[in-house]
Structure formats: C-alpha cells, structure tokens
Computed example of a mutant assay.
Amino acid sequence: MGGRLRPFLRRSRHHAGPRSDLAATALERAGLLRRLAREAGWDTGRSSDHSCIVPVIVGDDDAALRLADRMFRRGVSVYPFVSPVVERNQSRLRFLVTAQHSEAQVRAAAETLTDEWPLLTTERTGVACGPGARPAKCARARSSSSRASAQIHP
C-alpha cells in the first residue's frame, strides 16, 4: 500500500495552488492578529509566524474564562486554556485563525480583546483602567489594588 501512495504524496507536497494560497492567507491573518495583540501590550508567548494559532496570555484562570465569555458574547470565538492544561498563572486565550477570516474580522477580534480587558479588570478589581488601556497597565493597577486591599482588610 505504501508504494502506491508514494507518488501521490510526492506530488501533493510540491503542489502549488489553491491550498498553498489558503495557507499563506491564514498565516498572514494570524500574523496580523499577533502583531495587533503585541502592539496593544498583550503577551503572545512564543507564538511563531509559522502558526495559525495565536495565544494571548491572560494569566489568571478566572480572567481567561470570563474574557473568553465576554468576547463570545461580542461575536468572537476564542478558546480559554487554563490550569492544569497550562502552567498556573499562564492561562491564555487561544485564537485559531483561518484563511476564511477576513482582515476586518481579525482587526475586530483584536479590538474586542483590547476593549473588553479594561472592562473585565475594572469589574473584578474596582480599579478603572479606562477604554483601550494596555493589559500590563491594568495588571499593575490590579496588583497594587490587591496590595491596598490587603492592607485595608488584613
């Protein structure tokens, strides 16, 4: 059986056509999301330009779950990965970008992520980060808020 498949496999590996165009488009769109996320201050881990999967590290399990839910309610399908699947405090949202996603959809997903984070952070901590605040700024506000809370309520 393997002998009959070899010529097919050899041809399919070197075939340039619609499939390779789709793969290139998907990688291009994933690269756009990765760039927009990084520009907005998100950590995308060791995400490679050769992958259609774009992780966005959120940190806290609860925050990742709630952020994924908020994004879903706004029309963005993203998968939360929380411990024990990932290391503790390394929870993330995992975007799977395909060639069927338009550039406008990718930009809208990045914008939704950036819009929802400050709202979620404010809701969880009572510290207002403001619309479009960078994730790192909100994280600092959250940690200083929790330190202040710990001092006020020992």
Rank of each mutant, 00 (worst) to 15 (best):
R74C: 04
R134P: 00
S77F: 13
S145K: 12
D43R: 12
S48P: 00
H15N: 02
A37H: 02
V97I: 15
A63P: 00
V76N: 06
P18R: 12
E123Q: 12
P55R: 13
F72L: 13
V97N: 06
L67M: 09
T114H: 10
E39P: 00
A23K: 14
H50N: 11
F8K: 14
R34Y: 05
E123M: 08
G45K: 13
A133W: 01
V97P: 03
S149A: 10
R38E: 15
A16P: 00
A64M: 07
S48K: 00
F8Q: 13
A141Q: 14
V56I: 14
A141C: 13
A64L: 07
R124M: 13
M71C: 03
A136Q: 06
G2V: 11
A40L: 03
R107H: 09
R107I: 04
K137N: 05
A108C: 02
L5P: 00
N89W: 12
M1Q: 09
A23V: 12
G130F: 06
A104M: 04
L93D: 09
D61L: 01
R6N: 05
I152A: 12
V54M: 04
D21A: 15
A128D: 15
E39T: 07
P80T: 04
R140N: 10
L32C: 05
F81I: 09
A68P: 11
L33S: 03
R38H: 10
L36T: 08
H101L: 12
A141K: 14
I57P: 01
D43S: 08
A148E: 09
L96E: 00
P80D: 05
E28A: 13
P135G: 07
R10M: 05
A136G: 00
A104N: 06
S47E: 10
V56Q: 08
R88H: 04
D49K: 08
T44N: 09
D115L: 10
R70W: 01
A16L: 10
D49W: 06
T44H: 09
